[in-house]
């Protein structure tokens, strides 16, 4: 069988989720850049404009899923990189829980921002 170049062993749920989130992020990250730098221009971003976008349910849901996918993909990616660098034992467990807590915090904060922007447009 052909040699694989993955940094970590395939077949696990995290391995699968890393790739599913990657495929989703390819689309949403490109969309995010195109919308907020090329369609709208970053220097012209206002609270009213952001609130208007978040009042659209499809945009709100897409952004929440984008945040969830980016948070998982990023923190899991760091964890994989650390494991790949040979981190084991207690440092590995500490890294895992620091990343879990950091991921939850950034996700919750992102949701608070999204809800604020969505609520402000009502």
């Amino acid at each position: 069988m052909a040699e694989r170049y993955s940094s970590f062993s395939s077949g696990s749920t995290r391995w699968f989720l890393q790739r599913i989130s990657a495929a989703f992020l390819v689309v949403t990250l490109a969309f995010h850049f195109l919308l907020l730098h090329f369609y709208h221009h970053a220097p012209e971003i206002t609270f009213g404009g952001s609130a208007g976008r978040y009042s659209v349910p499809a945009y709100f849901v897409t952004m929440v899923l984008f945040l969830a996918a980016a948070t998982f993909h990023g923190t899991n990616g760091i964890y994989n990189a650390l494991v790949n660098q040979g981190v084991t034992g207690t440092p590995k467990r500490v890294a895992k829980w620091v990343l879990v807590v950091a991921g939850v915090l950034v996700f919750v904060q992102g949701i608070r921002i999204a809800l604020t922007l969505m609520g402000a447009s009502a």
């Binding site: 220097p43 971003i45 206002t46 609270f47 009213g48 604020t116 922007l117």
Partner: peptide
């Protein structure tokens, strides 16, 4: 954004 409309717009701009 959690600090209000003006804070968000002035921070980003």
């Amino acid at each position: 954004a959690l600090s209000g409309r003006a804070a968000y717009t002035s921070t980003l701009q």
